[in-house]
Design a protein around this nucleic acid. Structure first.
Lengths: 185, 185, 185, 185
DNA sequence: AATGAATGAGGATTCATTCAT
DNA sequence: CATGAATGAATCCTCATTCAT
């Protein structure tokens, strides 16, 4: 019955399918059955490759957050001046809150898990840490931290708004956070 | 047999129980059965009082977001100077990201729903709108919007961080967003 | 879909079906599916009527041991002299170890559970207690206890033997246990 | 790659692991996976060394019953007088029904199998036969048979009782079975 | 000779919902 | 008006076994 033939990319395919499904139907709507069907693997494969739904979810979100961080690092790494860095940050906000529901949805699914389970909080913590490190290539630590939070807030609000704010607002917010303090407040 | 029109608060109790349950086990782990058990009502009541799980969830989150907004409005309404408003905002950030897992969890559960379903996005939109209105009592519209996003970002990052940042950072971020522009940028 | 019409004997039917199935395939081979099929009820009924497999098993064995004890009490109750009691005991041994695999199998299934789980040991304890009480109507407590053990051992060995021993041996064993001590040991 | 003909005791280790597992979780809870994990061998080994679960179980119980019989034979073999033999029998009852859950559990698991499947009944038959032979070194055949049953019954009842009877009762029962008949009943 | 990979069948259980009462 | 009874679908997961290597 079983063919036993190696399909080394099967694990990867399952993870990808899981991520797609989570994006479409949410963690709540994700089941072994649906993931298996989408990945084109038999149901029995699921618990063979992953030690239960928990492991699959963890792998999927590890992959996801890793991808987001990579974009983050790449864009900020490409900036060579502070102004370019500011532009990159604005790009990131609009990239994250743009048309792609996918990333928005997945981010919130992850945050929801993280809000309740420590294992996922580890993931978000690492994500935030690396974001900050990337920002610290251009800004001092306190500014980096504030900027990171600003990015978060702007992205979320932009994405959940029916009429998302335009770039000018984003740029202005970034400017305020990153400009050197005035001589007199 | 019939008890007449008894227990008029039953609906309320069910909603409260649902909210508690969502906070503890998430939307995914919430079921008619569990809510009924926690509210101390018969299972049959659930689909009698609510037209399915959807309606119950909507009611629950309407109540929840309403409560959060009320706190928001109250605190900002109590501020009479701009500086007091800044303090109020800092208070709100630290209140939202403080020990109370409950609000963090429920917020993310709602955002997760909103990221996918328009019905819930309506709820978050209204929430954000009223927040902004409250902020506009003290700040100009653009600043209010940025501040609102900043509150969001700071709250989330503070809550998901293992070592939450201290108040100084929050205060500084608020100051930067709300300070008048320098003569020379 | 659901008819909701009462079927008050359904619980009983399920228990009876479970007992039959256990007799045929053992506790290990007993599943919700099989019991449901045999009882002619939908699978969903199982966990509606019983709080899981555990409860079903407990109910089934409670019924079973109760039935055995009832026969025991009845037969011993009908005896009016010590000699009749001795005959009744022999009857019981040969009844229990006779052609009916069913009772033998069920007894061992129960003992196996009792050997591991206290909840079932409670059942066997009560069974033994009532057996002893029934025997004490005709014999002193120590003799009753020994006789009860003898019945147990003879029944088991008779049932597991390919060529079961004949009644004479049973009668002789009972006689030895129940005869008054000699003047000189 | 190939380790050659290494680990010749692997079969033994698997059987030992299986027996431990059966004692802990029962035949029902025993699976290739669990046995393999406990024995520290790859899952694939199981069906390589044993032709399915059945063979493994048979081997395991053969080993088990052999061990019990050996103790039986040894203790009775060491007795040189009838009185010593009586003491040995009492020892055996209290050994079997003592603290060691393990033997009680395994015995019942085996009896349960034997009650249903002839293959295992062969095992118990041989066990009983050898027990009787051992007893016949000290007692006549009919007495041996009765004594064997008595041992069985006393052991089971003692083990399943919450307050196990003391040695006096065991000794008395053995005495009654083994004493020569009185001149006058 | 030995095993890692793989899978279809079946395990218990939970569920939202319906309907007769 | 209110609900206990009922159920089919779906849940995750475990399993014995097979086969290519």
């Amino acid at each position: 019955m079983a063919t036993g033939q190696n399909d080394p990319e099967r694990r990867e395919r399952i993870i990808a399918a899981a991520l797609d499904l989570i994006a479409e139907e949410g963690v709540a709507g994700t089941s072994h059955r649906k993931v298996a069907a989408r990945a084109g693997v038999p149901l029995g494969s699921m618990t063979y490759h992953f030690d239960g739904m928990g492991e699959l979810l963890r792998e999927a979100f590890t992959r996801f957050s890793g991808g987001i961080v990579a974009v983050f690092e790449e864009r900020l790494g490409a900036a060579s001046t502070t102004d370019e860095a500011r532009e990159a940050v604005a790009d990131l906000v609009h990239h994250l809150s743009g048309g792609n529901q996918r990333e928005l949805v997945l981010t919130h699914e992850l945050y929801t898990l993280a809000a309740r389970e420590p294992v996922y909080r580890e993931l978000t913590r690492e994500w935030m840490r690396r974001s900050r490190v990337a920002l610290e290539r251009h800004f001092d630590p306190a500014t980096a931290r504030q900027l990171d939070a600003m990015i978060e807030g702007l992205s979320i609000h932009r994405a959940l708004e029916t009429e998302p704010h335009d770039r000018a607002l984003t740029v202005e917010a970034i400017a305020r956070i990153t400009r050197s303090p005035c001589a007199r407040s």
